[in-house]
């Protein structure tokens, strides 16, 4: 073990008859074949399956993200739509309330007018009835007074 750090030739002479650092032989082509074989084996066992998994996942993430974006856009569109509808519904309900109030007002006015008219009519009739009764009562009274006067006159004239 005293031959450490000797150069190639020295190492060669110290050990076997051949050798050295730059000893090229059939190791070279066989190692090349070995590495080529390893390439094919690793391609089948490692690069293809793992690549497929990684790229599938990348594809899955991309499509999921695109889908999510699409869904978000759809949701936003729907939200805008619904807001619009809500606004319209509010306006419509406002209008309905106004109309209903106007209707109620009109009905109230109509009813009031009818009632007033009826009241006036019945008062008129009552007055007319009172007038006719008074008229007839007055006529009766006048007639009675005339008859009484005639009677008084007759009696006084007869007594004389």
């Amino acid at each position: 073990m005293t031959s450490w750090l000797l150069l190639a030739e020295a190492g060669a002479t110290a050990g076997s008859p051949e050798g050295g650092l730059f000893d090229l032989d059939a190791t070279l082509p066989l190692m090349a074949v070995q590495v080529v074989l390893l390439t094919f084996i690793l391609n089948t066992l490692f690069f293809r399956p793992v690549g497929r998994v990684v790229e599938d996942r990348e594809g899955y993430i991309n499509t999921s993200r695109a889908e999510a974006k699409q869904k978000l856009a759809q949701a936003q569109r729907l939200e805008a739509d619904l807001k619009e509808q809500l606004k319209e519904a509010r306006v419509a309900s406002q209008k309905l309330i106004q109309e209903a109030e106007q209707d109620a007002d009109k009905l109230y006015r109509q009813a009031l007018a009818v009632a007033t008219a009826e009241a006036i009519a019945s008062r008129e009739q009552a007055r007319r009835e009172i007038d006719t009764q008074r008229e007839s009562a007055l006529t009766q009274l006048r007639a009675d007074a005339d008859k009484l006067g005639d009677l008084i006159v007759d009696r006084l004239l007869a007594a004389k």
């Binding site: 031959s3 076997s16 650092l21």
Partner: peptide, 12 residues
């Protein structure tokens, strides 16, 4: 220990 340029030869 250190050995440089020593090979284990196989004959094929």
């Amino acid at each position: 220990a250190l050995e440089v340029g020593q090979q284990l030869y196989w004959q094929l």
